[in-house]
Simulated assay, not measured.
Amino acid sequence: MKKQYNVGILVYDFIDILDFAGPSEVLSLSAFSNFEQNIMLYKRTLPHRKPFHIKTVSETGNPIKTHTGTVILPDYSLNNAPQFDILIIPGGPLRAVNKVIKNRKIIDYIIKSQNIEMICTVCTGSLILAETGLLKGKVATTHHMALSLLNKSTGIRVVKDKKVVKDGNIITSGGVSSGINMALYLVEKLVNKETAHRTAKILEFNSYLESELMEG
């Protein structure tokens, strides 16, 4: 039996849509075989037998509004969310991120998830993860305009020339669209390289390059 992963994407007011929609689309459209992947393009609903199952979680479970005004209804609140195998922390404008950083309930939730299969961040989501202390002693990256802010967190080796950086069970990615790169890398690490490249081809995404990756 091929392993399947339950993925939780943390959502909060004013997050950037592509930060969570990009990884969600990549992981949702990955499949164990070329046949299964092609079938997805014709069906209205996704099959149950696939590598990743995606759910969203917010602090309260109430609808949240993205940076551009789109409203999202989360699947779970922090109180009723299951234990995910993978947690993805998207980014957003700094005022929104700073509000999350000050939210002890969210920070504690992330800390309690530290031993799951993978914790991933997109763009300025790494600033949220830095607040938990889980990036201490690790290599990480973020959006180029937030590198100096991540540098202020002690004990983090910040890199600026890689889109995706993995250190232990933590993966950080550089900018808004790099969440797509991160998710494809996740597919490669947890399923296989052939599936990652096949998924990138389905999405017609041509920027999945090994030169953009770094493992700490």
Score class of each variant (00 low, 15 high):
Met1Tyr: 09
Met1Ile: 04
Met1Thr: 01
Lys3Pro: 01
Tyr5Arg: 03
Tyr5Ile: 03
Asn6Gly: 14
Asn6Lys: 14
Asp13Val: 00
Phe14Trp: 09
Asp16Tyr: 03
Asp19Met: 05
Ala21Phe: 09
Ser24His: 05
Ser28Gly: 10
Ser30Asp: 00
Ala31Gly: 11
Phe32Asn: 02
Asn34Trp: 05
Asn34Asp: 13
Gln37Gly: 15
Met40Trp: 01
Met40Ala: 05
Pro47Asp: 09
His48Tyr: 08
Arg49Glu: 13
Arg49Thr: 12
Pro51Met: 02
Thr56Met: 13
Val57His: 13
Ser58Met: 01
Ser58Pro: 10
Gly61Glu: 07
Asn62Cys: 07
Pro63Cys: 13
Pro63Asn: 12
Ile64Val: 15
His67Trp: 05
Gly69Cys: 00
Leu73Val: 15
Asp75Val: 12
Ser77Trp: 05
Phe84Glu: 13
Phe84Val: 13
Ile86Asn: 07
Leu87Lys: 08
Ile88His: 04
Ile89Pro: 08
Pro90Phe: 02
Gly91Ser: 02
Pro93Ile: 09
Leu94Pro: 06
Arg95Cys: 05
Asn98Lys: 14
Lys99Arg: 15
Lys102Arg: 15
Asn103Asp: 15
Arg104Val: 00
Arg104Asp: 12
Arg104Leu: 00
Lys105Ser: 04
Ile106Asn: 11
Asp108Met: 01
Asp108Gly: 01
Ile110Gln: 14
Ile110Gly: 14
Ile111Gly: 10
Ile111Lys: 15
Lys112Thr: 06
Ser113Tyr: 11
Gln114Ala: 13
Ile119Asn: 14
Ile119Ala: 13
Cys123Pro: 05
Cys123Met: 06
Thr124His: 04
Thr124Phe: 04
Ser126Leu: 04
Leu127Ala: 07
Ile128His: 02
Leu129Ser: 08
Leu129Met: 07
Ala130Gly: 11
Ala130Gln: 10
Glu131Tyr: 04
Thr132Ser: 09
Gly133Gln: 04
Leu134Met: 14
Leu134Asn: 14
Leu134Asp: 13
Leu135Phe: 04
Gly137Ser: 10
Val139Leu: 05
His143Ile: 01
His143Lys: 06
His143Cys: 00
Ser148Cys: 01
Asn151Glu: 15
Asn151Ser: 15
Gly155Gln: 12
Gly155Thr: 08
Ile156Thr: 05
Lys160Trp: 01
Asp161Ala: 01
Lys163Trp: 03
Lys163Pro: 01
Val165Gln: 10
Asp167Tyr: 10
Asp167Lys: 03
Asn169Gly: 12
Thr172Asp: 09
Ser173Tyr: 06
Ser178Lys: 01
Ile180Pro: 10
Asn181Lys: 02
Asn181Gly: 01
Ala183Asp: 03
Leu184Gln: 04
Leu184Tyr: 00
Val187Tyr: 00
Glu188Leu: 06
Glu188His: 08
Lys189Asp: 06
Ala196Met: 08
Ala196Asp: 08
His197Leu: 11
Leu203Val: 09
Glu204Ser: 11
Asn206Pro: 07
Tyr208Val: 04
Ser211Thr: 02
Leu213Lys: 12
Glu215Asp: 09
